[in-house]
Amino acid sequence: MVAPEAPLAPNGPRTDRRGRRRTGRALSRSTPLLPAVVLLAVFLIGPIVQAFYGALTNSSLTGSAAQESEFVGLQNFADLFADPVFPKSVLLTTAFLVFSAIIGQNVLGLGLALLLRTGSRPVRVGVSTVVVGAWIMPEIVASFAAYAFFAEEGTLNSILGAVGIAGPSWLYSFPMLSVILANVWRGTAFSMLVYSAAINDVPPEITESAEVDGATGWQRLIRITIPMIRRSISTNLMLTTLQTLSVFTLIYVMTGGGPGTNSSTLPVLAYQEAFSFSQLGFGTAIAVILLLVGALFSIIYLRALKPEVD
């Protein structure tokens, strides 16, 4: 987003106090930032500091260790990496990110954005309303809806039954496939909206002149539209990845991470370790890893795209 150039205040309120030191002026100008800085420091940086500290102690939720937690260094991380559940969860999280965010939401979102340009008005309005509806719903309601859809006696199996196919128990036999499809359903609207806006910004003269030169629709898409919206594509890839990395409710309601830990992505595993198995240190160590991955993605995003800050 290109923000308008921040206007300087050349004749600002303080030209009459020229004698004051620059730093003093900068400070007073920054005072309105103070409440934000305090809130962010306590409730955003606070948990981050807590996470790094907690990951290095043997605190657990109940029992004697709850009162007096000891410093154990990197023991939590060592145990975590030794536990077969953790690498499995990393794999599941990666699959969840790749298939539901990077491929599912982005490809379907771009496809919908392109298709919606050709559709007639009632179709366009109807389809985009439904897609946005799945996105704007509160997450717990969306999770129930997805649960009912994939449940053994749910809508999907009723439809399959109507055409003579006995559907499996999706949530039990294919938990990852179910939550991946559910997350595509839930999140595609965001990509669709981003890509629709980006495609609208492509000057029509360019695609028209390509059409005159005999480029087919496919060629125009690959050679013109996609290169022209590449900034939106990379921004959107990053944002959908980060959003999907923190998905908890959808998976928790649909499968509870199960059966066993067969659909425990990292946020679900962190919850299970901390609150089901009373391993607060484990859960915190997972949170630290999630935090580092999120920070890495954020830095790549900021460096590669250099969003205009002013």
Binding site: P47, A270, A287, I299
Partner: peptide, 26 residues
């Protein structure tokens, strides 16, 4: 301001809701 805005953008990327365990401890 520039640093602050970059910090803000960086903050939007952190999966804070995915780390409810340390938030609970806090």
């Amino acid at each position: 301001n520039r640093a602050f805005l970059y910090g803000i953008l960086f903050g939007t990327g952190l999966p804070i809701t995915a780390m409810m365990v340390p938030v609970y401890s806090l």
